[in-house]
Design a protein around this nucleic acid. Sequence first.
DNA 1: AATTATCGTGGGAGCGCTCCCACAACTCCT
DNA 2: AGGAGTTGTGGGAGCGCTCCCACGATAATT
Lengths: 346, 346
Amino acid sequence: MDNITIFDVAKKAGVSKSTVSRVINNKKNVNEKTRQKILQVIDELDFQPSNSARSLVTKKTRNIGLILPDLGDCFFAKFTKGAEEICRSNNYNLLMISSYWDVKAEQDRIDILHNNRMDGLLLVSGSSISRSYINQLENKNLPIVVIDRLLPNTKIPTVNPDNFHGAYTGLKHLIKLGHEKISCVQGPGDLYSVQERIRGYRTAVTEKNPHFNPQKYIFQGQFDRESGYKAARKIIKTRPRSTAVFFTNDRMAVGGMEAFKEANIKIPEDISILGCDDLDYVSLLSPPLTTLEQPREKMGQKGISILMDIIENSRENKKQKKEKDWSFKFEMKLKIRGSTGPVPSR
Amino acid sequence: MDNITIFDVAKKAGVSKSTVSRVINNKKNVNEKTRQKILQVIDELDFQPSNSARSLVTKKTRNIGLILPDLGDCFFAKFTKGAEEICRSNNYNLLMISSYWDVKAEQDRIDILHNNRMDGLLLVSGSSISRSYINQLENKNLPIVVIDRLLPNTKIPTVNPDNFHGAYTGLKHLIKLGHEKISCVQGPGDLYSVQERIRGYRTAVTEKNPHFNPQKYIFQGQFDRESGYKAARKIIKTRPRSTAVFFTNDRMAVGGMEAFKEANIKIPEDISILGCDDLDYVSLLSPPLTTLEQPREKMGQKGISILMDIIENSRENKKQKKEKDWSFKFEMKLKIRGSTGPVPSR
DNA sequence: AATTATCGTGGGAGCGCTCCCACAACTCCT
DNA sequence: AGGAGTTGTGGGAGCGCTCCCACGATAATT
């Protein structure tokens, strides 16, 4: 069946395997006529060079690994999509694997993929990354790009949304609507993205109003719906109650909205809600959620592009190894929808 | 760096590469002491056998390809997740690729993966599959399992939800609530799943009421939100208006709900809505959507399990090649939520 | 005209493994 | 005691490719 090898092509075309190899690898020093002839034979025989044999000698597999916390999660699916697109157009394969939010599992997965001789890894980490972990990654001698995390003092490229400016912009919108007592529900505090969003919040709310103490208005959440609901319950009990809440992700915002509805607090008449992420469906809620869009698909694309650059680059000129500082930020766009409105006139 | 080969292990352990090979492949006829010694050396050297070299001789890559219409779509992400789980636990890698709902692209992708020497393919097809296409698949000499499509007269295993009984059950629920004039919004008519759901609808609504003419109550949709909205607009104009609508997927149901809300028709007081699929978020809508759950994650798992069976089986005994009829149906569970209620008392 | 560079090509080694066969050393029957 | 099995081991071929080197034929340079 699939036994047509470079040899069969060579024989049928009346040349040596070396010449065929030159043709399939687009090398020069091949007579144009010979090239055409070989191309024709390749087509006739439907010849496909064996990846295994190729990789065995070149040490390149043209496989990229993608690790993310949960393949089934809509939030991550967008990264996946963007990543796959770029891989496909560069003739790379994309291999995916879930880490289930577990640092240990994540490291296992990295090893698995490394052992499977991936050419590079795109890591969407489910947790904060420790210094020792970073070192480990750096020592693997394997191109890695990390999405949605900040890695201080490292040459590992990262791709992030501009969480600070995003949050800042969102908060400015609320402030412009007249809100002053704005609460904030934060996610897991060890996450870089959360820290930046909180910083954006703090900066915006204290800018014109230095007497405002954000500390009193920050509530703890865990990025899931349940914790958003609970935080909202707390906010409801707090006096004086806020007129707006910034949830540091959409999932919590959804939980929060449920709590407010339950308590018969009208959105946005009594309270404005600002989310973050722009999940697929939040525009379908009632009211549709105002939120900050994270360009996840583009981030996935960018991650792979960087990886390609590194791989191709190290292939070309191993000597110079110009380790650029590759660290990208993507703008978060404010999507104004129905969940935010003017501050209630008391 | 990664240059430790089976030879290095052999040398350090004082045996031949053959013996090491036997150990890493769990073959018998190896002295227990030698095995232990080799295992220890493997560990010390952190030796990982090269997949490329292995595949080159065994013709097996331990890679499975997954083709689906859109990696970024929540609906499909669940299949992905289930598939990856089983692959992982069997030490197979999962390679994913989007076909973007295009039959031509789908076939291209199949070729790509075939050429990349996948051991098997899981295909979540974005469209109906023609006879010639099926023949093509069968001739590829490549284990393939198809999800969410019926392939008549073929040995290609399929995994499907039980669309007929699902729809039937859902409709029975509406009927029990007193509804008689129940409309139905169908999706692309060439899809097997749609045909079955419609069949379930027809069976249920005519069972006790032979005078009911379902044909007048079936509206065309395209599985997207927009077409659900449009279909609902038509239903609103129709006299006498239905008291319940079965949308053959959730996306259309969402669009429909928007149209009804806009027209000030209350759900479920004035009209009951039944969806199909149970997308992640439909329980968050107002009111939460009653729908039929499709166990997509389990279907993904099952698909891969079948694939594993076929692969392992053809590996073991090529002679008998017992082509079982592998065709699985999964129950669709009715999720009763807020969008369905008793028929309005006029 | 003699030397050197360039082009087009073939041959061979080697990538790291698996798998078949050979062979020695035992054990076990009759 | 002698043939037949069993167990443990090593050696060699070969999987399908790439890449280096050699070599003849032209073309360009002095």
